[in-house]
Nucleic acid binder design. Structure first.
Length: 817
RNA sequence: GCCGAAGUGGUGGAAUGGUAUACACGUCGGUCUCAAAAACCGAUGGGCUCACGCCCGUGUGGGUUCGACUCCCACCUUCGGCACCA
C-alpha cells in the first residue's frame, strides 16, 4: 500500500496553521535566524522556479528551527506591475481586484507545498499601507537631494509605453517584453544611486557568502575606472577636458575626438569651413539608434571640426575631430586618440590618414609605425616621452598622472559606469510619486501627513497611450501644500523595483503604522541571514536593495551596511535542457504533480536531482524515484508502529551494531552537508544509504528496537525536506508534539570510531590489494602486514622496495623499482 | 577583449591530494505470481580474458607528487555577465 499523501498533507497543513507553528517574535532567548526567499509577482499560479526557490528556503527554515534557532520566515507579494494593468485594459477589470484575486490563488498553491511561512506577516506592495512608505522614503531622498527631476534622453519601451532604467534594458531590449528600446527626450525622476557608487563597490568585499559571479556582475555594472582628466587648451580659447585610463600614452596623442552630442562641437565649428559638413554628420548620427551605433562591427565614422587644441605635455597642435565611436555618457564625452596604443584609434587613424606616434614598445625590440598592423596595447617601456623615457609603462601611468596634477594640466580622476536610477513610469499600477506642481511655488513634496497619495479607484484603462493617472481629474487636480492654490499632481508612478528594495525590512514589523518599519524589530532581525532567489536579479534588485539599505541606514533606521548576509542563487528548472516556457509548450505544472504525487515527493525530487545552485533538468522518472523512496521509508515506519521486536540478543555484548554506526555516520554527514553550504542532494543520498542498510537486514530485524531507533532518526533528518510525511511518521512512532518542536539529532563521535581499518595497498600508484588491520595497529605493523600480503608479494617479487607511505586508517603506498 | 562559472558512465550527479563513478534514474537478470504490475534481491564505464586478472579511462597537452577529477602551467569547448567605457 502506498502512503496516503493527500490525507496526510491536508491534515498537517491545517494543523500547522491552526497551531501557528511558524509564528515568529522576539520574545525568546534563542538566537535569531532570518531566512528569506525573493517574493513573487502574483501571477496567480506558481511555476517550478517558484517551487524550487521556496523549497530550498523552506528546508533552510525548518532545519534552522530544528537546530534551535528563532526563525523568521515570511512571505508576501510584489504586487505592482504591468500584467495587472494589461489585464485591466484587456478585460476592463480593476487592477487591484485582479491582483488581490491572483494573490489569493497563489497563496493557496504555496500553502499546498507545505512551506513554513509566518503568514501573519504577509505583505502586498500594492496596498496603501505598504506603498505609503515608498512615498515616505522617496520624500526623505528628496529632502536629502537624492531624488531629483531632470530632462534627459531616456530608454523608452514602445510596447510597455513607459521608460526603463538602465538596469532594465537587456541586449538593447525591454527586460519584460524584449521590444527594442528607443531613446526619448523626457523630464523624469531619478534617484541618485551614484552618490553611493563607492560604498556599493567597496562593501562588496564584505559579502563573503555571496556567489562570486554576482559580486563580479555588480562590480562590472558599477564599473569603476581610474584615470586622469587632461586639460587641452583650445586654439579658439577655452579648455577641453578629456578622460583617459592610459595617461602613460599621453605623448602619443595625435588627435582629439568629441562625442557628436558634446556641447562644444557646435561652438567649435561655428563660422568654420567645415560647419555644414559636420552639422550634417551630427544629424545623421542623431537619427541612428544607439544599438546600431554601438554594434561592434559597424565602421566608425567621423569628421574634422576645423579646430585645434594643444597637448599640454609637449605643446603639440592636435586636430579636434567628432566621431560616432565616442559616447557622451562616459567620462567627459571626449577622448585623446593614441592610434599606436588603442585599437579603435588605430583603425580610425588608418581610415582617415591621421598621424601615429609610438610611445610604448616591448622591452627587447623597437616598434615602428610603418610595420604596425594593430595597436600595441600591452605593457612595455616608455619612449618618445621626454623625461619618462625608459620607464615601465605601468609605473608611468602613476607618475604621469601625478606630474600633470603638479603642473595643473590634468587631475587624477575616477569614472563610473553606474548611472542614476530612472524611476518614473508612465503607468497606473504603481506607487504615485508624491509630488505636486504649483504654478507659483513650483515643485512641492507632499507633506508626510498627507500620505499616502492613493491611486484613484475609477481610472479609465483605454490602452490608448499615456498614463490613466494623467487622465484622472480627480487625481491630477489638487492644491499646493505650500500656498493652497490650485495645483496638479505628478502623474508618473514609481518603478516597481522600489517596492522590493526594502520589503525585507518591512517583514520585521509588517503592521508598523507610524514608520516604514520598527527600528527595534529591524535591529533584532536584520540582516537577512540567508537570502535565496534567482540569478536574474544579480544586478537589478540586489543592487537597488543594497542602495536602499545604505540610505535607510544613513537616516538612522536600519543600522546595517548590507541587507543580505548570505546569498544563494538557485539554478533554473529546465525540461530537456531548455527553459520551460509557454512558447515552447514544455511547462511542467506543479499543481498537477502535487495532485499525482503530493508536495513531499515534488520537494524531494527537486532537492535531490541537483545541487541548489546548479540547473535542474526535470525528469518524470526521477519523480518516480523520489516517490518510491518515500514509500520505502513509510513501510519501515509502518512496520515499526505495529510493534518492535527486540534486537538480536548477541548484539548486547558485542558492542554497537553496524546499523547504529551507520546511523551516527549518517547524522554526521547530513549535518555537515546542511552546515557546509546546503548540499541537500548529498544529504538526501546519505539518508537513502541508511534506509538501504535497514532493508538489507533480515526481515524481523527491520522492526527491531535498533531499527526503530534508526527510523526515528531518519524521520528527523528527513523532516526539513519532506515535512508532511515526516510529521505523520513521527506521530506514528510515538511523537507527542510536532516533529518541528523536536531537536536535530546529535551523533556520538565514539560510535564513529572503527575497530578495524581497511587499508588499500598501492604499488607504484596502482591499487593491487586490500588488507584489514586493527584500527590502532602501529604503522610499522601495518607496513609488515601489507608487505606480507600474498598479492603484494607477487608484485614485489624480485624488486626492491624503495619507499613505503602509510596514511593511517586508509592506505599503504609501496614504491618499488 | 575583460570578468565569472563549468566540462566525470547511457542519464541526473558523488568524491578534506588517497579504492573515480556514492546516491538515484535507465537497462539487464532473478525472487514472488497462473500471469502482469508493485515490491524485494543482484548486475551494470570501455577493452582483452573460460577464468584469477590485466590494460585504458574524469575536455586536451604538459608539470608537481609515492599517488591528481582535485594542485600548477598552456590550451580547447560550453554557458553567463560587461563592452566602441577611452
Amino acid at each position: 500500500m502506498d502512503y496516503d499523501f493527500k490525507r496526510i498533507e491536508e491534515e498537517w497543513q491545517k494543523a500547522w496553521t491552526d497551531q501557528k507553528l511558524y509564528r515568529a517574535d522576539m520574545k525568546t532567548p534563542r538566537e535569531k535566524y532570518y531566512v528569506l526567499e525573493m517574493f513573487p509577482y502574483p501571477s496567480g499560479r506558481i511555476h517550478m522556479g517558484h517551487v524550487r526557490n521556496y523549497t530550498i528556503g523552506d528546508v533552510v527554515a525548518r532545519y534552522k528551527r530544528l537546530k534551535g534557532f528563532n526563525v523568521l520566515h515570511p512571505m508576501g507579494f510584489d504586487a505592482f506591475g504591468q500584467p495587472a494593468e494589461n489585464a485591466a485594459i484587456k478585460n476592463n477589470t480593476d487592477p487591484e481586484a485582479w491582483t488581490l484575486k491572483c494573490i489569493e490563488w497563489m497563496k493557496k498553491e504555496l500553502l499546498r507545498m507545505g512551506f513554513s511561512y509566518d503568514w501573519e506577516r504577509e505583505i502586498s506592495t500594492c496596498l496603501p499601507e505598504y506603498y505609503r512608505w515608498n512615498q515616505w522614503i522617496f520624500l526623505k531622498m528628496y529632502e536629502k537631494g537624492l531624488a531629483y527631476k531632470k530632462a534627459s534622453s531616456v530608454n523608452w519601451c514602445p510596447s510597455c509605453e513607459t521608460t526603463l532604467a538602465n538596469e532594465e534594458v537587456v541586449d538593447g531590449g525591454c527586460w519584460r517584453c524584449h521590444t527594442p528600446v528607443r531613446e526619448k527626450e523626457l523630464e523624469q525622476w531619478y534617484l541618485k544611486i551614484t552618490d553611493y557608487s563607492d560604498r556599493l563597490l567597496a562593501d562588496l568585499s564584505q559579502l563573503k557568502n555571496w556567489p562570486e559571479r554576482v559580486i563580479a556582475m555588480q562590480k562590472n555594472w558599477i564599473g569603476k575606472s581610474f584615470g586622469v582628466e587632461i586639460f587641452f587648451k583650445l586654439e579658439d580659447g577655452g579648455v577641453l577636458r578629456v578622460f583617459t585610463t592610459r595617461p602613460d600614452t599621453i605623448f602619443g596623442a595625435t588627435y582629439v575626438v568629441l562625442a557628436p552630442e558634446h556641447p562644444l562641437v557646435k561652438e567649435l565649428i561655428a563660422g568654420k569651413r567645415q560647419e555644414q559638413e559636420v552639422l550634417g554628420f551630427l544629424e545623421k548620427v542623431a537619427k541612428e539608434s544607439k544599438t546600431a551605433r554601438v554594434a561592434a562591427d559597424v565602421k566608425k565614422e567621423g569628421r574634422f571640426t576645423g579646430a585645434y587644441c594643444v597637448n599640454p605635455v609637449n605643446g603639440e597642435k592636435l586636430p579636434v575631430w567628432v566621431a560616432d565611436y565616442v559616447l557622451m555618457e562616459y567620462g567627459t564625452g571626449a577622448i585623446m586618440a593614441v592610434p599606436t596604443h588603442d585599437q579603435r584609434d588605430f583603425l580610425f587613424a588608418k581610415e582617415h590618414g591621421l598621424p601615429m606616434k609610438v610611445v610604448i614598445q616591448p622591452a627587447d625590440e623597437p616598434l615602428l609605425v610603418e610595420t604596425m598592423t594593430a595597436a600595441f596595447e600591452t605593457e612595455g617601456v616608455i619612449v618618445n616621452s621626454g623625461k619618462f623615457d625608459g620607464m615601465p609603462s605601468e609605473e608611468a601611468k602613476k607618475k604621469i598622472g601625478q606630474w600633470m596634477e603638479e603642473k595643473m594640466t590634468g587631475k587624477v580622476a575616477v569614472h563610473w559606469r553606474l548611472r542614476d536610477w530612472l524611476i518614473s513610469r508612465q503607468r497606473y499600477w504603481g506607487t504615485p510619486i508624491p509630488i505636486v506642481y504649483c504654478p507659483s511655488c513650483g515643485t512641492q513634496p507632499v507633506p508626510d501627513k498627507d500620505l499616502p497619495v492613493r491611486l484613484p479607484k475609477n481610472a479609465a484603462f483605454t490602452g490608448e497611450g499615456g498614463s490613466p493617472l494623467a487622465k484622472s481629474r480627480e487625481f491630477v487636480e489638487t492644491v499646493c501644500p505650500a500656498c493652497g492654490q490650485k495645483a496638479r499632481r505628478e502623474t508618473d508612478t514609481m518603478a516597481t523595483f522600489i517596492d522590493s528594495s526594502w520589503y525585507f525590512l518591512r517583514f520585521c514589523s509588517p503592521r508598523c503604522e507610524n514608520e516604514p518599519f520598527d527600528k527595534k524589530e529591524a535591529g533584532y532581525w536584520m540582516s537577512v541571514d540567508q537570502y535565496i532567489g534567482g540569478i536574474e536579479h544579480a544586478v537589478l534588485h540586489l543592487l537597488y536593495s543594497r542602495f536602499f539599505t545604505k540610505f535607510l541606514s544613513d537616516l538612522g533606521y536600519a543600522r546595517i551596511a548590507e541587507p543580505f548576509d548570505r546569498l544563494l542563487t538557485q539554478g533554473m528548472v529546465l525540461k530537456e535542457g531548455e527553459v520551460m516556457s509557454k512558447s515552447r509548450g514544455n511547462i511542467v505544472d506543479p499543481d498537477a504533480i502535487i495532485k499525482n504525487y503530493g508536495a513531499d515527493t515534488l520537494r524531494l525530487f527537486i532537492l535531490f536531482a541537483a545541487p541548489p545552485e546548479a540547473e535542474l533538468d526535470w525528469n518524470d522518472k526521477g519523480m518516480d524515484g523520489a516517490w518510491r523512496f518515500l514509500n520505502r521509508v513509510w513501510r519501515l515506519a509502518d512496520g515499526i508502529s505495529r510493534g518492535t521486536a527486540p534486537s538480536a540478543s548477541d548484539r548486547l555484548n558485542a558492542g554497537p551494531s553496524a546499523l547504529m554506526k551507520k546511523m551516527h555516520q549518517t547524522v554526521k554527514k547530513v549535518t555537515s552537508d546542511m552546515e557546509g553550504g546546503f548540499k541537500f542532494n548529498t544529504a538526501i543520498s546519505s539518508i537513502m544509504e541508511l534506509v538501504n542498510e535497514i532493508y538489507k537486514l533480515p526481515e524481523p530485524e527491520q522492526c527491531s528496537q535498533e531499527a526503530a531507533q534508526a527510523v526515528r532518526v531518519i524521520v528527523l533528518l528527513l523532516a526539513p525536506f519532506v515535512p508532511h510525511i515526516s510529521e505523520e511518521m513521527w506521530r506514528m512512532l510515538g511523537g507527542q508534539a510536532s516533529v518541528f518542536t523536536a531537536a536535530w539529532p546529535l551523533f556520538d563521535p565514539g560510535l564513529l570510531i572503527e575497530e578495524e581499518a581497511s587499508y588499500v595497498v598501492q604499488i607504484n600508484g596502482k591499487v593491487r590489494s586490500k588488507i584489514v588491520c586493527p584500527a590502532d595497529m602501529p604503522e610499522q605493523e601495518v607496513q609488515k602486514a601489507a608487505l606480507s600480503d600474498p598479492r603484494v608479494k607477487e608484485w614485489t617479487a624480485g624488486k626492491t622496495v624503495k619507499k613505503v607511505i602509510i596514511v593511517p586508517q586508509k592506505l599503504v603506498s609501496i614504491v618499488i623499482s
